[in-house]
Design a protein around this nucleic acid. Sequence first.
DNA 1: TTCCTTTTGTTGAATTTTCAACATACTTTA
DNA 2: TAAAGTATGTTGAAAATTCAACAAAAGGAA
Lengths: 219, 219
Amino acid sequence: MKKYLKILKNCALFENIAEEHLLRMLTCLGAKVEFFDKKYTIIAEGSRANFVGIVLSGSAHVLQVDYYGNRSILGSIESGQVFAEAFACAETEHIPVSVVASEPCEVMLIDCGHILHTCQNNCGFHGQLIYNLMKDLAKKTVMFHQRIEITSKRTTRERLMAYLMFCAKRAGSESFDIPFDRQELADYLEVDRSGLSAEISKLRAEGVLESNKKHFKLL
Amino acid sequence: MKKYLKILKNCALFENIAEEHLLRMLTCLGAKVEFFDKKYTIIAEGSRANFVGIVLSGSAHVLQVDYYGNRSILGSIESGQVFAEAFACAETEHIPVSVVASEPCEVMLIDCGHILHTCQNNCGFHGQLIYNLMKDLAKKTVMFHQRIEITSKRTTRERLMAYLMFCAKRAGSESFDIPFDRQELADYLEVDRSGLSAEISKLRAEGVLESNKKHFKLL
DNA sequence: TTCCTTTTGTTGAATTTTCAACATACTTTA
DNA sequence: TAAAGTATGTTGAAAATTCAACAAAAGGAA
């Protein structure tokens, strides 16, 4: 577990928990690490998530596929970020999303019951852990508000620009990478891929942005 | 406060907290009640929500208005339901939504700090309260997944049907009321109002549903 | 390198939405 | 009750999306 400390230190779930306590805590929580190759499903839609997941390396996408096979991407989980926590806390019987590795990735899984209910050893930092999980859940909700603000736009161009401006703001620079290829970006923005490609070309021709694959620069 | 006990007993935030303890707890939490007339803003976009809100009577809508004046409705808060908890917990400086009374309503406001940090009296039920808030936050996230599933549909008809089927499932009956008028439903589904009206007329003509204002029946 | 696969870009036709304008029905209040 | 205001339904034209098909570019494997 030691080699993951650097990432875990920056994980919202372990904020304000000193490094020296962290290792002991992980044992106490029964944390385990699994590896997933690109495109492998980490949790499948319809299953039950009893655990909280943390991406240690690589990245994963959260997605929904509806009855007709239309895919929506709800978000990208990067290294150090938490997933499945909402379904674990809400004790959802059948989760409505899948989490799929978008790159090869290592994932830490922690039984949510161990987080919510104090263990027999009564680790002193349990309260902090619960507080951190609460904050994380609250921030997930805020994140969904941002996504809804983007997808509430009515045209492909507006959705794309709203998303890119959000990315620029988050990166603190007009130059940044996005975690999606074209099809994935279309599935995130809930628009047609070919129309999205056409719109990117137009914006480039208009001198609004430069782009190369996953890299964008707003001008 | 006594007259609100019946509603608060059914509020997720106070689950598993006995009625006799509840009143004392409310005092301890510094809960206060405010009244808002229809269309009045309970919290304004851009402000800071330090409190958790509970609708005691009436109902409210959570909405976003973008730069161009386009309104999106994120959800309806009915009697007994909690709002603003995510922004309060995440300590968001400028909340991205407004909460507006959709009917005259009474609202209980509780300082979120009082919930998160144990008071000096150290009420025995504080732990339960925090646990309940966590569950509520998790369920809000699940709720957003449902809304995204609905608005990810590409046509007005599909969005409408997905929403109505969700309502029917929630009500446990093909016959139910929705909390929105036509413009509000359009703003929730993120479609054009006139197109929505036309689609409802078509579905009625096709014998798929019956409807009268806010009442719908799937056939 | 070459072949094969995947991704991205391009285009035009069909579908759907949006927009604007108006008619009708319903509510509220003076 | 009448008048005014609000909500809903209807329509056609303009704009945008979706869909399908294909070309070009990039990436991976042998």
